[in-house]
């Protein structure tokens, strides 16, 4: 735990937009100190998937470097969630391959791979019969990561503190708002100490302040834990805030992949559609 010192936030963090709210937040650092990723790259090549007649992925190629944060943009229904479900092994592709840290993904046994991959589901997918704290702590408890329960509680509360839900530990998920569920799901994924973290619309339903907190969390994970992250989002501001590179998924293929500037300057219509302000000049 010596490296914990190096991770401790010294002064107001990375200067991010939401950092002020979390300044001097030591409980948060318990978790960040505990997290330790072996950064893994992801290599997707020629990935195809159909559901009946519906050809969703028509040959996705994507290479992600270890420690990189890649944002995936794409219209609703283009298969972003389907792509993430393939990466984590919940869906078996019709063709093509996915390597995580050089190891092929085990499609029938998600969670059994060499590297720990965690996902924040679009639906949050919280366990409705467990309290918020039990949801977050389940992985640690079931895998007996720590011998004493005190440590589990400590990690769980610091994870919940990072997402701003400390006071909700003993609440059942059914009484939470959609945005709160999303944040619990984020905390639950974090405590798994993943090498690769997949976010499926982590900020959908969040207010601007919380969106910034999540944005800063993604930056912290990148800079301090060197975690590889794939973020699916519709939030262009968030995309440009956190991304090392942005991939645009359209018609079942990645049509553009590069650093934010490249995406901003890309002339393709399908790309520009996304990054121009929705209300254009009419915005007051």
């Amino acid at each position: 735990m010596a490296e914990q010192e190096g991770i401790r936030r010294e002064n107001g963090g990375n200067g991010g937009l939401g950092a002020a709210g979390r300044e001097g937040n030591h409980a948060g650092n318990v978790l960040l100190g505990y997290l330790k990723s072996a950064p893994v790259g992801v290599n997707i090549s020629g990935l195809t998937k159909s559901f009946g007649q519906n050809r969703v992925l028509k040959g996705v190629d994507l290479g992600i470097e270890p420690g990189e944060t890649v944002v995936i943009l794409g219209k609703s229904g283009t298969g972003k969630s389907v792509l993430l479900r393939h990466i984590i092994g919940l869906e078996r592709p019709d063709g093509g391959s996915i390597l995580i840290g050089g190891e092929p993904v085990e499609y029938d046994a998600p969670g059994k791979g060499e590297h720990v991959v965690a996902m924040v589901f679009q639906s949050s997918a919280l366990f409705n019969s467990l309290t918020v704290a039990d949801n977050v702590g389940l992985y640690l408890k079931e895998h007996k990561v720590f011998k004493d329960d005190g440590k589990v509680r400590q990690i769980v509360s610091s994870a919940l503190e990072i997402v701003g839900l400390s006071e909700k530990e003993d609440v059942m998920p059914s009484v939470l708002s959609g945005g709160m569920k999303r944040r619990v799901a984020t905390a639950r994924a974090l405590v798994m100490n993943p090498d690769l973290l997949l976010f499926d619309e982590p900020t959908a339903g969040l207010d601007p302040m919380m969106t910034r907190t999540i944005g800063d969390l993604i930056l912290d994970l990148k800079q301090k834990v060197e975690m590889t992250q794939i973020v699916v989002t519709h939030d262009i501001d968030l995309a440009f805030y956190v991304a090392d590179r942005i991939a645009v998924l359209s018609e079942g293929r990645i049509i553009e992949f590069g650093p934010p500037e490249q995406i901003r300057d890309c002339a393709k219509h399908a790309v520009q559609e996304f990054i121009t302000p929705q209300f254009g000049e009419n915005r007051r």
Partner: peptide
């Protein structure tokens, strides 16, 4: 209970947690 866990991706979440 199990049907709703399947439909709402809770079973999927369990699998990804290697449970």
């Amino acid at each position: 209970e199990l049907a709703s866990m399947s439909v709402y991706e809770e079973i999927d979440a369990l699998k990804t947690m290697d449970i």
